[in-house]
C-alpha cells in the first residue's frame, strides 16, 4: 500500500474517531429515548412551574367585588389573567407591582382595534379615530366596559 494511502487512512480514521467522540459528547444523553428528540425535554416541560392560576380558587377569593362586576358584563367569559397576566407571583405575595395593570390604549386595541378578520361579536374601533387623545379607561370600566 502506498504511503500516501496509509497516511490518509490514518488521518481519516482520526477524523472519524474525533467525530464519534464529539458526537458522543454533543448528543444529548436522553436523545432517542422515545423518538427523534431529547427524552428529558418531556420531563423539563413537566417540571416547569405553572404560572396561570385557577381563577375561581385565587383571584375571586379576594377580588369578589370586581368579579361580580365582570360577571354581569360582556367580559364575563374572559379570564382575569387574559388582561392581568399570569397570577402565580401575585397569589403568593399580593402586591400591586407583581400583576399587570395596563392602561395604554394599545393594550385594549389588541382585541378591539378594527380588524376585518376579527369576529364581529367583539366590539371594534378605529384606533386612529376613536378619542385618540384619551385612555380607554377614562370612559370605559374595563371590568364592565359600558361607559362609566
Amino acid at each position: 500500500m502506498p504511503v500516501q494511502v496509509k497516511r490518509l487512512l490514518i488521518a481519516f480514521a482520526v477524523f472519524i474517531a474525533l467525530f464519534l467522540v464529539a458526537r458522543h459528547f454533543l448528543r444529548p444523553a436522553t436523545f432517542g429515548e422515545y423518538g427523534h428528540y431529547r427524552g428529558a425535554a418531556l420531563k423539563e416541560n413537566e417540571d416547569r412551574p405553572i404560572k396561570y392560576v385557577n381563577m375561581n380558587e385565587t383571584c375571586i377569593t379576594c377580588h369578589d367585588s370586581i368579579a361580580a362586576v365582570r360577571d354581569s358584563s360582556v367580559h364575563k367569559s374572559i379570564n382575569c389573567q387574559t388582561c392581568h397576566g399570569p397570577g402565580y407571583k401575585h397569589v403568593d405575595d399580593p402586591q400591586k407591582t407583581n400583576i399587570v395593570k395596563e392602561h395604554a390604549r394599545e393594550f385594549c386595541g389588541r382585541c378591539h382595534s378594527k380588524n376585518p378578520a376579527r369576529a364581529k361579536v367583539i366590539k371594534q374601533i378605529d384606533m386612529n379615530e376613536h378619542n385618540k387623545e384619551d385612555e380607554c379607561i377614562s370612559c370605559h370600566n374595563s371590568h364592565n366596559p359600558v361607559l362609566w
Binding site: A22, P28, F31
Partner: peptide, 9 residues
C-alpha cells in the same frame, strides 16, 4: 448548527 450532524434524521 452541529446538531444537523450529530442527530441527523
Amino acid at each position: 448548527f452541529y446538531e444537523i450532524m450529530t442527530t441527523p434524521h
